[in-house]
Amino acid sequence: MPPRSSSSSSGLTAWLLIAAVIVLADQFTKILIVGSFQLGESHPVTSFFNLVRAHNFGAAFSFLHGASGWQRWFFLGLGLAAAAFIVWMLRRHGHQKLFAWALTLILGGALGNVIDRAIHGYVVDFIQVHAGGWYFPAFNVADSAITIGAILLILDELRRVRRT
């Protein structure tokens, strides 16, 4: 957990460092996949998990994947706007640990995917979970961080509602 501090800026710095670690982990894993796999190539790891190289030009679950290209700039801008808003929220609420963890995970994930959109024009996905012929859409470390952050936001809100 980030160190306690009397200064909100040093608390913010700790949260931003954690987000940076998430971005680095996300980008490192994507570099490994891009360097080792051809587009569409898949390698089974277990009976329910594959590593696969996929390119997502859209958003979650390939939403708008087939659009004409405008979605790259839309989702890049949306990701940057969300990141700015999250930094503002962390500055104001960084002392609320669960809330700040949630925001930090979402921030790291959002920036990881923004970097992909800026560099490639798409997001590199590589984690594929499947069972009984059903395949969940491929995702990546950034997507995992965003999902865990969203779950933590829900838990934080449930805790807040229960207190009132």
Rank of each mutant, 00 (worst) to 15 (best):
R117D: 08
A118I: 05
A118E: 02
I119F: 11
I119L: 15
H120C: 08
H120V: 02
G121C: 06
G121S: 07
Y122M: 09
Y122P: 07
V123M: 04
V123C: 06
V123K: 02
V123P: 03
V124K: 02
V124N: 01
V124E: 06
D125I: 02
F126K: 04
F126W: 12
I127C: 13
Q128R: 14
Q128C: 10
Q128N: 15
V129W: 04
V129G: 00
V129I: 15
H130E: 09
H130P: 09
G132K: 10
G133R: 11
G133N: 13
G133H: 12
G133D: 11
Y135W: 14
Y135A: 12
F136P: 12
P137G: 00
P137S: 05
P137W: 00
A138L: 03
A138C: 03
F139C: 08
F139P: 10
N140G: 06
N140I: 05
V141K: 00
V141A: 15
A142P: 02
A142T: 05
A142R: 09
A142D: 03
A142C: 12
D143C: 10
D143H: 08
S144H: 00
S144P: 09
S144I: 03
A145Y: 02
A145F: 03
I146L: 09
I146E: 01
T147H: 00
T147M: 05
I148P: 01
I148M: 11
G149P: 12
A150Y: 01
I151Q: 00
I151W: 02
L152N: 08
L152D: 07
L153I: 12
L153C: 12
I154M: 14
I154S: 09
I154H: 04
I154D: 03
L155R: 08
L155G: 13
D156Q: 13
D156V: 02
